[in-house]
């Protein structure tokens, strides 16, 4: 049953990606509109898939690398849907949705491993921690992509060579505004994610903070976005600098998400989350 939902979601995302790419190349508004609808349907199925996973496991389905990739993909699509509703920038989909498809495909290539759920992972705090952190990450994806779009558009206008992207990308003002909103909301969610995470840690290990690599890198990510937000609000940064920094912070975030879990050892690595003892 789960696999049916997963495959349906993946195929709908695939169709939506193809549609979004066609939309940005040929600029058929209708194609964009339909891609968006197909994406919404896929998102509904994706949500069902996650709920089903939660029901089966009795804990949030983000305990293995495989399932957390699928969860991250869901968070990116969720963030896109929220920002599309607010800013009505369909081209955002042409940039964002391919990314979530890649994550879904990656997730599907990883073999299923049995997961033993520890008692500490049941209850409200872990789902809260996982959902807010991943949704925050998803929103930071939007900030990063809006930053990339900003840099492309700004470069065209500054160098006075108005290429194919000039008419396809939205105005600098909107891109900068997306950047600002994404960083604000992403930062809020990341903060909540870290607080709830420490509560989960307290339940599981009896201490809120252990200077585990995941915790350290999360703190670094948080600081990076905190600096960026401060520069925007207090110093009046905007445009290119803010876009560059949003991209930079995102690299740290990706390392925190992937690198720490795969390369370093700690209680937050998936081996230990899955219930295997540390070597």
């Amino acid at each position: 049953m789960d696999i049916v939902f997963f495959r349906l979601t993946l195929s709908l995302y695939f169709v939506a990606t193809a549609g979004f790419l066609y939309f940005i190349i040929r600029r058929r508004k209708k194609v964009g509109l339909w891609s968006h609808r197909i994406l919404l349907l896929g998102f509904a199925l994706h949500t069902m898939f996650l709920l089903l996973g939660y029901y089966r496991l009795g804990a949030v389905p983000a305990l293995s690398f495989k399932s957390s990739l699928a969860f991250f993909s869901w968070a990116i699509v969720a963030a896109y849907i929220i920002f599309q509703a607010k800013f009505r920038i369909m081209v955002l989909g042409s940039f964002v949705i391919p990314l979530s498809v890649v994550l879904m495909i990656l997730s599907s290539t990883i073999p299923i491993t049995p997961v033993t759920v520890r008692p500490a992972f049941k209850g409200i705090w872990l789902p809260l921690h996982a959902t807010t952190s991943l949704l925050g990450d998803g929103i930071f994806v939007i900030a990063c992509i809006a930053g990339i779009m900003y840099l492309i558009q700004e470069r065209q206008i500054k160098t006075k060579r108005l290429g194919a992207f000039y008419s396809r990308l939205p105005s600098l003002n909107i891109l900068d505004s997306i950047n600002y909103h994404a960083i604000s909301y992403g930062f809020l969610l990341l903060t909540i994610g870290m607080i709830t995470g420490s509560i989960v840690a307290q339940g599981a290990h009896g201490t809120y903070w252990r200077w585990d690599p995941k915790e350290v890198w999360s703190l670094l990510t948080w600081l990076c976005y905190a600096v960026l937000l401060h520069q925007r609000v207090a110093i009046g940064w905007r445009g290119r600098r803010s876009a560059l920094m949003a991209i930079g912070c995102f690299f740290i975030l990706i390392f925190t998400f992937l690198g720490v879990n795969l390369l370093m050892e700690g209680y937050h690595s998936f081996e230990s989350l899955e219930g295997n003892p540390l070597p």
Binding site: S167, S171, N173
Partner: peptide
């Protein structure tokens, strides 16, 4: 009819791409 072919229109189009 996609893009501006007069100086003034091209300027307005640019302004819109900068300011929305």
């Amino acid at each position: 009819a996609g893009s501006a072919v007069s100086i003034s229109f091209a300027a307005v189009e640019l302004a819109k791409k900068i300011f929305g």
